[in-house]
Simulated assay, not measured.
Amino acid sequence: MQRPDVLFDETHCGQCACGEGLDFQFSFAFQPIVDVSDNTVYAYEALVRGLQGESAWSILSRVNEQNRYSFDQICRVKAVKLAAKLGMDAMLSINFMPNAVYQAEYCIRTTLAAAQTYNFDTRKIIFELTEGEDLSSIDHLVSIIKAYQGMGFSTAIDDFGAGFSRFNIMTASPPDLLKIDMGLIRDIDRKPNKQAVVNGIITMMTELGGRIVAEGVETVEEYAWLKGRGIRLFQGYLFARPGFETLPEPHFPDIG
């Protein structure tokens, strides 16, 4: 599909020319992804919220075929602008919609312009794909991942193991980060079947040279089991809840 040129316009509240036709506004909450090898914040994931902190669903339910491209582009600009305003010095993880990216090199222009305007290092940006999105072409997704990695961005697949696992992506163009779905994480310390699956994912990513993020971690027992398997990047309520337009300080449980 042909799209109009994308031009960043700082004068329109951090939006861009591609935002025409988007009839709702939104902001972000940030949740830390922590590195327990040195008890630091590795990244903050930008989670879409309403202007008063309303749920992600209150915004995402309004995204459709007609406004998906504008929404995806504006998400990037707003996330970069707010991260810069808050003085974020960790990585910034931005969820993107592959079906809104018709050509990676072209659609990235707005992100690059925003990063330059707000003095945010593009090498600190992670583009995160939600694994469950309905994709018409795996080849298209692989081309996006390769293009973003070639431009110096990090890439991640979110919710891996949620039921839409795309192992063909892993063989064609593995991401830098693989986020294990919280459904696999929950009660993993006492679920042998989940343990077997996660052990396999750990082996796969180790051999592919990528890193794993265990997301949705809520209990010390889950954390201890996963850390004992060599995972070092974690995200979840055990460490910090998302903070609306703030950068929450994480808590690091002592598991001995």
Rank of each mutant, 00 (worst) to 15 (best):
I94E: 06
R49V: 01
D121R: 13
A56R: 01
L82F: 13
V63L: 06
K81I: 11
Y42N: 12
N95K: 05
A56L: 01
A43C: 11
D89K: 09
T40H: 10
F96G: 02
F120I: 08
A115L: 14
K85I: 10
I94G: 10
L60E: 05
T117G: 03
G87F: 13
T122Q: 15
A90L: 14
G87Y: 12
W57C: 02
Y44M: 12
P98A: 12
L51G: 03
L92V: 15
A84W: 09
S58V: 00
S58I: 00
S61Y: 07
Y102T: 02
G50L: 00
Q103H: 14
D72C: 06
K78E: 11
N64P: 08
L47V: 00
Q73N: 07
V80Y: 01
I74Q: 09
A104P: 03
L92T: 14
N67Q: 09
L92Y: 13
R76T: 03
R49F: 02
K81M: 15
V63W: 05
S93K: 03
A90S: 15
F96M: 14
A100W: 00
N64W: 05
E128K: 03
V63H: 08
L86M: 15
R123F: 13
K124F: 13
M88I: 15
W57M: 05
L92K: 13
A46D: 07
G50V: 00
R68M: 06
V48E: 01
I59D: 00
F127P: 00
A83M: 15
V63K: 08
N64A: 07
A79T: 05
K85F: 10
F120R: 07
V80C: 06
Y42S: 09
S58K: 01
M88G: 11
C107G: 12
T111M: 14
Y106Q: 10
L51K: 04
N67L: 09
Y118Q: 10
Y42K: 11
P98G: 04
G87S: 14
F96N: 03
G87W: 14
V80T: 02
L51I: 10
E45K: 02
F71Q: 06
Y102G: 01
F127Y: 11
D72F: 02
V101Q: 02
R62A: 12
E65D: 09
A90M: 12
G87M: 13
A114C: 12
S70Y: 01
A43S: 12
A84M: 11
T110V: 13
Y106R: 11
Y106M: 07
L60S: 08
Q73F: 04
M91P: 04
P98M: 06
Q52A: 10
Y118C: 08
Q52I: 02
V41N: 07
E65A: 04
D38R: 08
S55Y: 00
I94P: 05
Y42R: 11
D89R: 14
F96Y: 15
A113E: 15
T111H: 07
V101A: 06
N95S: 10
L60A: 03
N67P: 10
R62M: 12
R62V: 05
T122M: 14
Q116A: 08
A83Y: 13
E105G: 12
Q103P: 00
E45L: 03
E105D: 13
G53Y: 04
F71N: 04
A83T: 14
K78Q: 10
S55I: 00
D89S: 06
L47D: 01
Y69E: 02
M97V: 13
L92D: 07
F120E: 10
D72R: 01
K85Y: 12
K81G: 06
